[in-house]
């Protein structure tokens, strides 16, 4: 009877162990801090929301069952599998992209505030209300939005590349999507997870 129970336990453990090939990343808040600093630098300290006391839904403590699940998985999944992008990486390419975006932000920020341009759920920007941009500026702003998105995609790829995992771009982009929204100024528009426009 005892050996039977042991057999069941071992089988259960075996089954659990069979699940560990799933790659789940839990980028910790600490790991994101470098990304957040970069976003704050690009958006400018005056405009970016710097009130650290307000935590977004994304930053709120994870539900208990998730924490337990995370603990179990961290136990079962070897650390190598649970690796997360390191946002502290810093390469010439990343620094250049950051400088370009920071320069451009000087022109774009007033249109964030007017609601002409919003932050999309996939960590890019989009013209959501062209009529809020004077006709005279529309072509220029359109070109800037296209350039900003080229820079942002290049940035996410550069961070993934610097981590030695080019395929991590989507994870990096996902992390940034939340940070851009967190750091957006008051009154700026962003897309929620369903793609609906909301105002901060």
């Amino acid at each position: 009877m005892k050996s039977l129970r042991m057999g069941i336990l071992l089988s259960a453990l075996f089954l659990l162990a069979a699940c560990v090939t799933i790659n789940i990343y839990f980028p910790s808040a600490q790991a994101e801090e470098a990304a957040r600093e970069m976003v704050q630098d690009i958006l400018g300290k005056d405009d970016a929301k710097t009130d650290k006391n307000t935590t977004s839904a994304r930053q709120q403590p994870l539900p208990l069952y998730v924490q337990v699940g995370e603990g179990v998985l961290n136990f079962l999944v070897s650390p190598a599998h649970a690796a997360a992008p390191d946002f502290n990486v810093n390469t010439p390419k990343i620094r250049k992209l950051q400088a370009q975006m920071k320069r451009r932000n000087a022109s774009l920020k007033k249109y964030y505030a007017k609601g002409a341009i919003g932050f999309t759920r996939n960590a890019l920007i989009k013209i959501r209300n062209a009529s809020a941009i004077p006709l005279k500026q529309r072509s220029k702003i359109k070109k800037m939005v296209a350039a900003e998105n080229r820079n942002r995609k290049a940035l996410y790829q550069a961070i993934a590349d610097a981590n030695g995992h080019p395929q991590w771009r989507a994870d990096v982009q996902k992390t940034y999507a939340g940070i851009w929204v967190d750091e957006a100024g008051k009154g700026w528009w962003y897309q929620n997870r369903k793609g609906q426009w909301k105002q901060r």
Binding site: S139, K140, M144
Partner: peptide, 10 residues
């Protein structure tokens, strides 16, 4: 100028 962006020409 109104249509120039992202270059020194702007």
């Amino acid at each position: 100028l109104p249509t120039l962006a992202e270059s020194m020409l702007a």
